[in-house]
């Protein structure tokens, strides 16, 4: 038997950690060497014990997964990080990948897939849940995402609340002409044709909430 892959399980829910520990402890190929309930604790544990792969939740109190990955990278920590979360929106996926996550799985993944993903991450291969892969592909395939200006976001928020050009104009004390111009710029930047698509794209990309 070769040396087991050493795992650190990071999740703010104890039941989730127990479940993962149980899943991997039945297999000689893996060894759960630590647990953490948030990102800060994960960074601390990773510095104390030797870890090969970190199973990291994203949304946690005190310090989330993305910040923890960033800290680990700054520290030059060699562990691979496999995200295991419930969320697959752009807002979650992109920062995690950019921070340096090796893989991104969702919590509804079958156990075999999770085990394969840990092996792959250990070997340095990227593993992405299918929905996460399409999120990333969609991002690459879409037109350059020019950032919306704060003012354009103000306009978009009011439109998302159901505002007409006239009501948005009165609210912001500008002309409807200016609102229409802002909307045209917003459509171009988001690669859409109308206000409904602009609003839904903005929600999907996490530009407004």
């Amino acid at each position: 038997m070769t040396t087991p892959i050493r795992l650190l399980v990071v999740d703010d829910h104890p039941i989730m950690r127990d479940g993962l520990r149980g899943l991997f402890s039945g297999d000689d190929e893996f060894e759960v060497v630590g647990e953490a309930g948030d990102g800060a604790e994960a960074v601390a544990v990773a510095q104390r014990v030797e870890v090969d792969v970190i199973l990291m939740d994203l949304r946690m109190p005190t310090m989330g997964g993305v910040e923890a990955i960033t800290r680990l990278r700054q520290l030059g920590h060699p562990a691979r990080v496999l995200i295991l979360t419930t969320y697959d929106t752009d807002r979650d996926v992109l920062p995690a990948i950019e921070a340096g996550a090796t893989g991104y799985l969702l919590k509804d993944a079958p156990r075999d897939e999770l085990i394969r993903a840990v092996r792959a991450a250990y070997a340095g291969h990227s593993v992405l849940a299918p929905s996460v892969a399409s999120t990333l592909m969609g991002r690459v395939g879409s037109p350059p995402a020019d950032a919306l200006t704060p003012r354009e976001l103000d306009v978009l928020r009011l439109v998302a609340e159901g505002g007409t050009n006239q009501s948005v104009a009165r609210r912001l004390l500008v002309s409807e002409t200016t609102i229409k111009t802002h909307l045209l710029h917003i459509y171009t930047k988001l690669g859409v044709r109308d206000r409904a698509a602009a609003v839904s794209t903005a929600y999907k990309r996490g530009l407004i909430s």
């Binding site: 003012r151 912001l172 004390l173 500008v174 200016t178 111009t181 802002h182 710029h185």
Partner: peptide, 8 residues
């Protein structure tokens, strides 16, 4: 009166 200058 509200003046708003918008640079695009």
């Amino acid at each position: 009166v509200r003046l708003t200058l918008t640079y695009l």
